[in-house]
Computed example of a mutant assay.
Amino acid sequence: MADMFNANLEKIFESINSTIRLAAEFGDTDQKNIKPYAELAEQLVGLTVKYNMHSKALQESSGEVTLEEFDRRYQSNITASKSNIKNLKRYKDFISQAKLLLTGDDSGPSPNQQYDEDLEVEAAISEIDPITKRPLEIPVRNQKCNHVYEKSSIESLIKNNARTRCPVMGCAASQYVTLADLVEDKMLQHKLMLQRRQSMDF
C-alpha cells in the first residue's frame, strides 16, 4: 500500500514538473507564475504527512487486543501535525526546482525565507552517495530519516544484510532500512543533472 501511494505521488510530482518545464519553454506570463504549482505541491506534501501519520498510528495500534483499546491508541497517535508544510524539505526542494526552471532563480521558496543550516549541509552532502562516496546517479530518499543514497548501493546493502541501518554517520534512526522505505528522488536527480551540465559548460 505504501509503495503504491509513494509511486503514485512520484508520478504526480513528475507530471507537475513536466508541466513546469513546458510552461518555462513555451508558456506565457500567467503559465510561468509559480503560485499555482506551489499550492499543488503544498497539498501533495500535506497529504503525504497525513498518510505517514495514519500509517504509523495504524502500525503502533495493531497490537491492541480490544477494539476500544485499538481506537484509543490510534486516536492518540493521529494528533494534528504542527509542522508547517512550507518548512518541509520536500516542499522547499520542489519550490527551488520550480523557480530554477521558470525563472533561472534558485534562491529558494521566497526571498525572505532562509534555509536551515542543516538543510544546506545536507544539500551539499546529498550529491555524494554515503556508501560508495561516489556522485549520485539515481538518488533514493529514506522516508524514515530523509537521508539520500545511490539506489544500487543501498539495495545491495539491504540484499546482503536485512538488518542494515541508515549508513549516514550520526543518523538517529534506529529502524532497519527496507526497500519499502526508499523513494526515488526525481527532483534531486534532475537538479544534479542540471548542475553537472552547467559545470561542463564552463
Rank of each mutant, 00 (worst) to 15 (best):
D3Q: 10
D3E: 10
N6K: 12
N6E: 13
A7Q: 09
N8C: 15
E10G: 03
I16E: 10
I20C: 08
R21Q: 13
F26C: 11
F26Q: 13
D28L: 08
D28I: 07
D30C: 07
N33Y: 05
Y37C: 02
E39Y: 08
V45A: 15
V45Y: 12
G46F: 09
V49T: 11
N52I: 03
M53A: 09
H54F: 15
S55N: 05
K56I: 01
V65D: 11
V65E: 13
T66A: 02
L67A: 12
L67W: 02
E69D: 14
F70Q: 03
R72L: 02
R73F: 01
Y74L: 13
Q75C: 05
S76W: 00
S76V: 01
S76I: 00
I78S: 05
I78H: 05
S81V: 02
K82W: 00
K82Y: 01
N84L: 09
K86T: 13
K89E: 12
Y91A: 08
F94E: 09
A98I: 07
K99M: 03
K99L: 04
L101V: 07
T103N: 11
G108V: 10
G108L: 09
S110D: 09
N112W: 08
Q113M: 13
Q114K: 15
Q114I: 14
D116I: 04
E117L: 15
L119H: 04
V121G: 07
E122K: 13
I125R: 15
E127V: 12
P130G: 10
T132I: 12
K144T: 00
K144P: 00
Y149N: 03
E150Q: 12
E150N: 08
S152Y: 01
S152N: 07
L157K: 07
N160K: 11
N161R: 06
N161A: 12
N161F: 08
A162D: 04
R163G: 03
T164F: 04
V168I: 09
V168D: 02
C171L: 09
A172H: 05
Y176T: 06
V177W: 01
D181Y: 06
D181L: 06
V183K: 10
E184Y: 00
M187N: 10
Q195D: 15
R197Q: 15
S199V: 09
S199Y: 03
F202C: 11
